[in-house]
Design a protein around this nucleic acid. Structure first.
Ligand SMILES: [Mn+2]
Ligand SMILES: [Mn+2]
Ligand SMILES: [Mn+2]
Ligand SMILES: [Mn+2]
Lengths: 223, 223
DNA sequence: CAAATAAGTTAAGTTTGCTTAACTTTGTAG
DNA sequence: CTACAAAGTTAAGCAAACTTAACTTATTTG
């Protein structure tokens, strides 16, 4: 049975290696992600490889074995279901749920998380729009997400994913009425500074480059 | 900030020293309670005393300082609110909630537990009938609990507390329809084997000595 | 391509929370 | 009041998960 440290490690490797880019997770990256020294990561990599949870070539990179991947998916499932539960049932704001879920994910039996899953009606996405693996570790079908930066002027879109690590930004978004599944229309794009002018709830609204980078959308018919 | 081990330790000392008897908690007792060697307990006692969380005289006993007591009460609050939440909201049986709460109590922010408290409507007792400290660490007013063993023949009583560590017994009680707040009437007491014959939901029912020992009641007018 | 920089590893040491074994103190029963 | 058992402590050691410092390998860039 993996420890908390190992769970966090497996999850970080999984999320990086399945994020889209083709670069494999490396020591420094995981070290920054988990706020742990590179030395400790290097050591943990060796141990997890010995346990058969990941494969690893010195100085190259690492990726999870099926066993490691399955464990990572269980942790991710717990994380995202907790976020959903805290948000929908206990009415915690979407900027607060990540930190709590980061701990709870390691202290929740499979039995309990299934109860939570059922209570919520087996949701497919968490409050930030990330997909929730089911009890078998299966992800919901892929959606064709688009970075907001590559949306087209005059296009109508729905907010499908918002990065979950920046509470200040998320609070700001809530304040201006931009939440998950909000419908927007792109009014104008400013290439020189990356800002985007959108229509949101009937209001014209300007989004900074930093914000634009943290949002993904799906095209829809009309706003 | 106390670690998980320290929280469990403080909680165990508090619960023993506030259980009614006059004997102070000792090394062996806590060791058995937490399933840890006496040596480890002895060591931890010294460290907690250095931290000012308990006072302690070698070879005698220990009791919590106000600081230690306040920490213990916070953990107990989290434990009992989690039990209540898992039982009432997620419909887990009262025999299952203790184990889950034993872990969750150490990984729940004050903010989150207050949300749970509010969601439940600030309950005063957990599913086993134990009192729940409020956010300030105040316990609800004392109730005059009676061991079922000292109930009187022909008396009417309400089940006010059931020991929370024996899932098999609790499952059996659920099966025969005896739950927290059930009303009963004592039909007959058997001194030679400690069994008690009661009326429960209109049915005559026999409770073994082992069961009788784990139940506390309050006298009421009529069953 | 050489040198500088970035990435990764190894070594040595720390802290926490445990273990077992050997010992000391205290309480109790004859 | 003694001796024996129970309770408690001390000592030594271990494993997990970290740290920092010194080193090695890989990558970038002028
Ligand atoms: Mn998250
Ligand atoms: Mn985590
Ligand atoms: Mn309990
Ligand atoms: Mn606990």
């Amino acid at each position: 049975m993996p420890t908390i440290s190992k769970e966090n490690y497996l999850k970080a490797v999984f999320l990086y290696n399945n994020r889209g880019g083709e670069q494999m997770a490396g020591t420094t990256l995981i070290a920054n992600e988990l706020n742990i020294s590179k030395a400790a990561i290097s050591d943990m990599t060796r141990r997890l490889a010995e346990e058969g949870l990941l494969t690893y070539e010195k100085y190259k990179g690492m990726h999870l074995t099926p066993k490691g991947q399955s464990l990572a998916l269980q942790v991710i499932r717990k994380h995202r279901l907790w976020e959903s539960f805290l948000h929908k049932v206990l009415k915690m704001s979407w900027s607060e749920v990540h930190v709590e879920a980061e701990r709870l994910e390691h202290h929740t039996s499979d039995y309990l998380i299934d109860k939570i899953d059922d209570y919520l009606g087996n949701p497919q996405y968490d409050p930030h729009g990330s997909p929730i693996p089911d009890a078998k570790g299966e992800m919901p079908p892929d959606r064709p997400l688009l970075p907001l930066a590559s949306a087209e002027v005059d296009g109508a879109y729905q907010i499908a994913h918002v990065h979950d690590r920046d509470p200040q930004m998320m609070n700001y978004l809530s304040r201006i009425g931009l939440v998950l599944n909000s419908k927007i229309k792109v009014l104008e794009k400013f290439d020189f500074d990356g800002c985007i002018h959108i229509e949101l709830n009937g209001q014209p609204t300007l989004l900074s480059e930093k914000i634009v980078e943290q949002i993904k959308v799906i095209p829809i018919e009309y706003v």
